[in-house]
């Protein structure tokens, strides 16, 4: 360690300028916002770019707005802003709670949600919950803009659908959903398993099957069928045991320093159960 190699710094003032730069510079350029993942990789020599396109100073990428039953999170919005934003705290307290536990306070102060999603590090917290909430990413490129479900945007480890001339303009998250919680298990610096649950309880009974998504285990978020919980009560041990088993079977963990394959499978089941049970506390 570790100093990044020399690069040209570009500071477009508008999204249009940023898109033009991206088209012009191609693979030699990286989009740069919080830099918490990118700069680390550049310091380690894992990534090397001749150009950085700084998105932070583009006014159009800032801010969180809540309208039409959706939360729109600009690409330059940091984890810290989400953690503390009154609209997020009010409309999506589960997301605010997740953001409050991302990495550490310094990373949250600098790092952006869009950057986190674009980097597509598998051991990240936000994707599972955002997928469970049906979040979409707004991409803008030379051909105009398009929207993709986050679930489709995330292709694999460090791999997304982001086009070569595109950038993330915003993340859109529907609000007004029933309860949404995220539970993670972490032994090292990143989560070993994270499970998001979105669902609704009426009188202590699940109204429809909750949505359950496992993050940080596979290369991308994995949905777990939770139909066994449709109409089940919070204390239905049989249904939760079945959910845990389904979750454990849904993932394909690999042995690493956070745990071996069978242990992580087991943990996935435990966390799935706990996340869904926590819907009762929302």
């Amino acid at each position: 360690m570790m100093l990044p190699s020399d690069f040209e710094l570009h500071r477009p003032a508008t999204v249009g300028e940023a898109v033009a730069l991206r088209a012009e510079l191609g693979e030699a350029a990286a989009l740069y916002a919080g830099g918490t993942e990118l700069l680390l990789a550049m310091k380690l020599g894992v990534l090397d770019y001749e150009h950085l396109i700084d998105l932070k100073r583009i006014a159009g990428l800032r801010g969180v707005t809540c309208a039409g039953g959706e939360l729109r999170i600009g690409a330059a919005v940091t984890h810290r802003e989400l953690e503390t934003h009154p609209d997020v705290v009010r409309e999506l307290p589960g997301l605010a709670a997740l953001e409050r536990a991302v990495a550490n306070v310094r990373v949250r102060a600098a790092g952006t949600l869009a950057g986190n999603l674009a980097f597509a590090e598998p051991h990240a917290d936000p994707p599972a919950l955002l997928v469970a909430l049906g979040a979409r990413v707004v991409l803008v490129g030379g051909e105009g803009s398009r929207e993709l479900a986050l679930e489709d945007f995330l292709v694999g480890a460090y791999e997304t659908e982001l086009g070569e001339d595109e950038l993330i303009e915003a993340i859109v998250v529907p609000v007004g959903a029933p309860g949404a919680v995220y539970r993670k298990f972490q032994v090292l610096e990143r989560p070993a398993v994270g499970v998001a649950a979105v669902g609704n309880l009426v009188g202590g009974v699940f109204d429809g099957a909750p949505t359950v998504v496992v993050g940080a285990v596979d290369e991308r978020p994995v949905r777990v069928g939770a139909e066994m919980l449709d109409g089940a009560a919070l204390d239905d041990e049989g249904a939760f045991a079945a959910l845990a088993e389904a979750a454990a079977e849904a993932v394909e963990p690999v042995d690493d320093l956070s745990g071996s394959e069978d242990y992580k499978r087991h943990l996935t089941g435990v966390l799935a159960k706990r996340a869904v049970q926590a819907l009762g506390d929302v």
Binding site: G35, T36, L39, L40, K43, R106, A109, A110
Partner: peptide, 8 residues
């Protein structure tokens, strides 16, 4: 806000 000066 607190930041890591090593990676800023």
């Amino acid at each position: 806000l607190p930041v890591s000066a090593c990676t800023t």
